[in-house]
Computed example of a mutant assay.
Amino acid sequence: MRSLLDPRKKKKKSAGLDVALGLVPHHPRQQQNKEQPRMSSCVSCFWVLLSACLLAVCTFSFLSPSWIVSSGGSGPGGPEPVSFGLLWHCSDSPGHMPSCYTWGGLGRFNDIPSSSWQTSAVLCCGGCALLVMSCFLAIVTLFLPSGLCERRLCTLAGYMQTAAVFMMGSGILVFPFGLNSTTVKKYCENSSIYYAGDCQIGWGFMLAIVGVMLSVFLPFFAKYAPKEHTSPTPIPTIL
């Protein structure tokens, strides 16, 4: 009779019933260990790797002097072969080593031959700067546990990458307007807006277009980069 009326056994039976119904977890310490955040994920690692690669591609293409390439004149007295970029121009005189110079020297931004190229240089350099900062934030998120801080950094980096894509894309669209300048017409006859005349589109310009097109996917991966908690559905057990 005492065993049936013992309140301790009643508490044990009620606790076991709660565990069986799934109202109370059976192993709270084990469940806490399972709910600890993962330190890395495949999406976040791929996002960081893609951000670093596209940063290198875009920076290299925007610093390249081979956006517009001229093969030179047909005769000996014709214009020499040159190539133009946003910040550099190179000349390849016959019998001489190729020489590259910045437009008007360092610190003389106004000497860029076209206002369209000046605008394109500002937009592309600003986009590269945003890619640098977003890549740094992406690397930082790899070492953070999942939580509010990590999600905010991923969101901020995604916004930066979105702005960088718009800025670099606008810079690429504005650049062909400078083909109508006097300096370009000197080497590329009959050139006009969005028409290179006797010149050709160089590999630097094409590489910049490819880099910007691939950068469109960066904000998408930034959305799914935050790590998630591993919180499996508790399975009721009867013990």
Results as ranks from 00 to 15, higher is better:
1 M>L: 09
2 R>V: 07
3 S>K: 13
7 P>R: 05
8 R>W: 09
8 R>P: 03
13 K>C: 03
15 A>N: 11
16 G>C: 14
18 D>Q: 12
18 D>T: 08
19 V>C: 09
19 V>P: 00
19 V>H: 05
21 L>D: 11
22 G>F: 01
23 L>E: 09
24 V>A: 08
27 H>T: 10
28 P>H: 04
29 R>V: 06
30 Q>W: 05
34 K>A: 14
36 Q>A: 12
38 R>F: 10
39 M>E: 14
40 S>T: 10
41 S>Q: 04
45 C>G: 06
46 F>W: 07
46 F>R: 08
48 V>C: 12
56 A>G: 14
57 V>C: 13
58 C>G: 11
60 F>L: 14
62 F>T: 09
65 P>K: 01
69 V>Q: 09
71 S>Y: 02
73 G>M: 01
79 P>D: 03
82 V>Q: 12
86 L>T: 02
94 P>A: 15
97 M>I: 14
110 N>M: 14
111 D>P: 00
111 D>F: 11
112 I>Y: 00
113 P>Q: 01
114 S>G: 03
114 S>Q: 02
116 S>Q: 12
118 Q>W: 02
120 S>P: 08
121 A>L: 12
124 C>W: 05
130 L>Q: 00
131 L>R: 12
132 V>L: 14
133 M>C: 15
137 L>T: 05
137 L>Q: 08
137 L>G: 13
140 V>T: 13
144 L>V: 03
146 S>D: 08
148 L>W: 06
155 T>P: 02
156 L>E: 05
159 Y>F: 15
163 A>G: 14
164 A>W: 00
168 M>P: 00
173 L>W: 10
173 L>C: 11
175 F>Y: 15
175 F>T: 14
176 P>V: 03
178 G>V: 00
181 S>H: 03
182 T>A: 12
183 T>M: 06
184 V>A: 07
186 K>N: 10
188 C>K: 03
188 C>S: 04
191 S>P: 02
191 S>M: 04
192 S>V: 05
192 S>Q: 10
194 Y>H: 12
200 Q>M: 13
202 G>R: 14
203 W>N: 07
204 G>C: 10
206 M>P: 00
208 A>C: 11
209 I>P: 10
213 M>N: 15
213 M>G: 13
213 M>Q: 15
218 L>E: 02
218 L>M: 08
219 P>L: 03
219 P>H: 00
222 A>K: 00
226 P>R: 02
226 P>E: 04
231 S>D: 15
